[in-house]
Design a protein around this nucleic acid. Structure first.
Lengths: 191, 191
DNA sequence: CGGTTCAGTCAACAGTTGTAGACTGAAATT
DNA sequence: AATTTCAGTCTACAACTGTTGACTGAACCG
């Protein structure tokens, strides 16, 4: 009772590729790079390991395809605007979970390519943020905002930390908001 | 030119066990659970894979031994005291890096036992923190402090994020301080 | 219709893994 | 001195890995 009537060569091909990508995304996100095998991906996609190799070249290349993600909205403006933009980006990540992103995060501690991608992404964002933050600590502040964001997504969606795994994104954001503003401000605003 | 004159059976045994534990700690911390092989541990410890198995039973058991870590100073007091205690704990972790802790963190996204250990440790700390934080959001606030702490250690020592990898622990703490206090406070103290 | 392309299948490769067990020789014990 | 214990070594196994290449049959194109 599935939707089909497949048979057109290019159409079949496109479908299998999509199934493989979806299966790979799921498995990489759940198990990480090393524990995800080509065979398991093929089984999950109901196809053959050989096909996976032929269509994507190698396990590494498949991983790279799955973890292609579009960059965040570039933060700009003053410290407060920056904090709000970053909170909004975090909110998006918490609301609409992407297998690609999760695959990347899941493997970032063990797969060098994933680690490098994260480093590069965060570094670029940092530079933009640092420009807008007064004081010579701009880079450090930007990096710590990144770290906090990372920890939050990791804790909620990958580690499923108690008290965070089911939490409503909006409540998370509202608790985090003052903290992000505090981090974004070079000069102490309270005390 | 090494210090030795080994030969006493129990002494030799103790030494090799220590070498194995040290080697395993280093490798688990650098490469994570899956990519660390018994053979590599044995080679690093200049001994035999068979011995590693005999002395520690299994790879899992060896990992468990290596990642035994003593719990943090239990946080107590009001929100501000709690924030300070947690900052101090973070400072300790940043200043004196422990291979056991790093091995645990490195593997927490791919090795279920490591993930569970982290969850349990953080959950227990959270409960204590939550009691002292006013408002019904105590657990969420506690969890987010944990996530931020996790992200900071991860970003600095495991991922080596640009702008964080070489950062002085005290500067990190001073930037994080207002943010931790903001997170610990149930009622908004600033605006 | 005849020939070509190509999605899909299958079997096999070379290497690595955790783990088990037999063996050796020297320290420990009697 | 005779015997037992045990740290250390070596070999082997069964399972699993990414990857390759030969094969099959149906869709495609002339």
């Amino acid at each position: 009772m599935e939707s089909d009537a497949p048979s057109s060569r290019s159409e079949r091909r496109r479908r299998t590729e999509r199934r493989i990508l979806a299966a790979a995304g799921r498995l990489f996100a759940e198990r990480g790079y090393e524990k995800t095998t080509i065979r398991a991906v093929a089984a999950e996609a109901e196809t053959d390991p050989g096909l996976v190799m032929r269509y994507f070249g190698s396990k590494d290349a498949l991983f790279a395809r799955v973890t292609e993600i579009e960059p965040d909205e570039p933060p700009q403006g003053g410290p407060d605007e920056i904090a709000e933009v970053l909170l909004r980006s975090l909110g998006d990540k918490l609301r609409t979970r992407q297998t690609g992103t999760e695959a990347m995060l899941r493997s970032m501690l063990t797969h060098p390519a994933a680690a490098e991608e994260i480093r590069a992404t965060l570094a670029e964002q940092q530079h933009r943020i640092a420009e807008a933050i007064p004081g010579d600590e701009g880079h450090l502040r930007a990096a710590l905002i990144g770290a906090a964001t990372l920890g939050t997504v990791l804790g909620r969606d990958l580690l499923r930390l108690e008290g965070l795994s089911g939490a409503d994104p909006d409540r998370i954001l509202s608790v985090l908001r003052p903290a992000f503003h505090a981090l974004a401000h070079g000069e102490a605003e309270q005390e």
